[in-house]
Simulated scan of single mutants.
Amino acid sequence: MAGIKVLRSLKDWTLSFAQSPRGTWALFFLALAEASFFPIPPDVLLIALCLAAPKRSLYFALICTSGSVLGGLVGYALGAFFMETIGRPVLVFYGLTDKFDLVSRYFHQYDAWAVGVAGFTPLPYKLFTISAGAFRIDLLTFFLASTISRAGRFFLIAGSIFFFGEMVKHFIERYFNLLTVVFIGLLILGFVVIKWLL
């Protein structure tokens, strides 16, 4: 319960930037941080910004993708150069150290494209970015997989608001609180999948 309360507090803090003139910068840095160490997915702020300015939705998706891909490279660097001092403590904090060897098998089987799956789904992206660096996965393939998966995820969200306009906007506005709870639930489910089922 304490963990859920912390996540909700972080979610509320994240959403506070939606009404701020610094909202775009906040989106960029949130996406960057989430790919390497922060728990709240940037989708929450991305949706809020897109709802406030639907015609700028694709721009927000580009900002979010750029931050997330850069954050993935930060996660990669943490695993490659600072695994013991920073990378491993991040994994310990999220209770993911016991899945480190398992992820290594995924990388050996699917190379950096394992990152592509994690980048599009609620699985903890930071586990894959840090692990990719630790296992020295090919950096170009890692970059391409990150870009494709993160762009696919964020442009799908923003594009639905941009192209379907008021219909999607009214739906999301009406169920925004429910959708943010679902995002948090998917986040927690991602950690559960990594921790227990894989």
Rank of each mutant, 00 (worst) to 15 (best):
Y106F: 15
S104A: 13
A61H: 14
D111K: 06
A118P: 01
R153C: 10
P21T: 09
A48E: 03
R88I: 13
A35D: 14
L62A: 14
K195D: 15
A132S: 11
S66W: 03
L70G: 06
R136N: 07
L32V: 02
M1H: 07
S36F: 01
A80L: 11
I47R: 02
A31D: 03
F38H: 04
V69E: 03
L45K: 01
R174L: 01
L186C: 12
K99Y: 06
A77L: 14
L189K: 14
G185Q: 13
T85Y: 06
R150N: 11
G185S: 14
A61M: 13
G159M: 09
T85W: 07
S66Y: 02
F154Q: 06
W113G: 01
L30H: 08
D138F: 13
G72P: 08
F164A: 07
F128P: 02
F100D: 04
D43P: 03
F28S: 01
G79D: 13
L30Y: 06
V117W: 08
I188G: 13
L198V: 13
R22G: 09
K99N: 12
W196G: 08
P21L: 06
K11F: 09
F107C: 10
F164E: 05
V92R: 12
P41G: 02
N177P: 04
S68F: 10
A35H: 12
F183W: 15
W196N: 11
F176A: 07
F155S: 02
I63M: 08
A114R: 02
F176P: 02
F163C: 05
G95A: 07
L51D: 01
G72S: 08
Y175D: 02
F100Y: 11
V6D: 00
F154D: 00
T24D: 00
F17H: 03
Q19W: 02
F164H: 04
I172K: 10
R22I: 10
I188N: 14
E173F: 06
A2V: 06
L187S: 15
F81I: 06
Y110A: 09
K11T: 14
V92T: 11
